[in-house]
């Protein structure tokens, strides 16, 4: 494989995303009144960003861990625990929104540190260490209210705006009533969760590409032993990687709670696997060292486009599971095949 092929590899995730997006565009049923595509409308695309925001934030944290050749299975449970802690602080503790957010993030940080310490200090394999946290965090989520859920209401408006649209947020800040207008503006569909997802993506991509910490992440994933011998602070950075992943899971939990206006101890079950799937579709290797945040975001959006178009087309839930499995495999293999085919045709001419 030449360097040209290596370079092209970086565009695989974007290629897969473009492919799925194009299919969705063509396969979209027409608007029943105007006949235009209902998939590619600003509203639907903004809705899609909101729908993927939680998994997206989880997947960004997971990308860091996987780049370092680890894995974090606990993020779904941590999301549940942090969501419960935030709601508990707001409702049972009657604390303010910033305290609840801090509580949710701190919960994420605590479980992230737990993962990091198990991996770094006790030298437990990441799969096993985070499997333990997966159970522990779920236990905490269920203990907080003895398995019951916690509902929020408008008196917690300051917290709820984290899950809302820009217009609702603006209305809350100016403390105006939100009028029910038929004419929907884009600010009705552009949401805070989507904005947080995109910002976290940009920041993480910058940190990975431009800072020493970022380069160390790749080095650890490439070869931890060589990195250690080269004098890189492997242990400290690993701890930091798991802590960041934990905080991001905590953040996703806060957003989850605000979006649903409720925390339920079973929230986030299975989310870790969806995040890992997004990372894999983005082309980040589970053996570490290769991949990146933009690839993961492409993976997240690919899954989002897919579930949106399948939903809009009313494909049965059971069939959806099977189709997503096929896409997962194709996403990992198809770009490679297309490029090979293209190279062969080039050579023949």
């Amino acid at each position: 494989m030449g360097s040209r092929a290596r370079n092209l590899e970086r565009f695989y995730p974007a290629l897969v995303l473009a492919l799925v997006f194009s299919i969705a565009w063509i396969a979209s049923p027409p608007d029943r009144k105007t006949g235009a595509s209902i998939f590619v409308t600003p509203e639907n695309l903004l809705k899609l960003l909101r729908q993927v925001s939680e998994i997206g934030i989880l997947a960004i944290g997971e990308t860091l861990v996987i780049l370092s050749a680890g894995i974090d299975l606990s993020i779904g449970s941590v999301l549940g625990a942090s969501s419960m802690v935030s709601a508990y602080l707001l409702v049972d503790g009657a604390y303010s929104a910033p305290v609840a957010v801090a509580g949710g993030l701190a919960t994420g940080l605590a479980f992230g540190m737990m993962n990091g310490m198990l991996v770094v200090w006790l030298r437990i394999q990441p799969f096993v260490a985070t499997l333990a946290t997966f159970g522990a965090a779920r236990g905490v989520a269920r203990l907080i209210k003895e398995n019951a859920s916690i509902g929020l209401d408008e008196s917690q408006g300051g917290f709820l705006i984290i899950g809302r649209s820009f217009r609702e947020t603006a209305a809350w800040i100016r403390s105006e009533e939100i009028p029910n207008s038929a004419a929907k503006a884009l600010s009705d569909f552009a949401t805070i969760p989507a904005a947080i997802f995109l910002s976290i993506g940009l920041i993480s991509a910058f940190v990975l590409a431009k800072t020493r910490f970022g380069r160390t992440v790749y080095a650890i994933g490439g070869n931890a032993e060589a990195s250690r011998l080269a004098g890189l602070p492997v242990r400290r950075n690993l701890l930091l990687i798991y802590a960041i992943c934990g905080i991001l899971a905590g953040l996703a939990g806060v957003i989850h709670c605000a979006q649903l206006e409720q925390a339920n101890p079973v929230d986030g079950e299975g989310y870790e696997l969806r995040a890992i799937a997004a990372v894999a579709i983005g082309g980040t290797l589970l053996t570490g060292g290769r991949g990146g945040v933009f690839s993961t975001m492409a993976g997240v959006l690919t899954l989002g486009c897919l579930s949106s178009i399948l939903g809009i087309r009313n494909v049965r839930a059971e069939t959806q599971l099977i189709l997503i499995a096929i896409i997962l495999i194709l996403a990992v293999k198809l770009p490679e095949w297309i490029l090979k085919l293209a190279q062969r045709t080039n050579r023949n001419t």
Binding site: I38, F39, N44, L260, E261, Q262, N264, I312
Partner: peptide, 30 residues
């Protein structure tokens, strides 16, 4: 419940004429 919110949004996108819903939980779907 989060999936059900997205499901209903998809129905909105399809411009349904009527929604029948059996909610998973009251609060998140309201």
């Amino acid at each position: 419940s989060a999936k059900q919110v997205a499901d209903v949004e998809n129905f909105l996108t399809q411009k349904i004429d009527l929604l029948i819903i059996s909610p998973n939980e009251a609060k998140p779907l309201t």
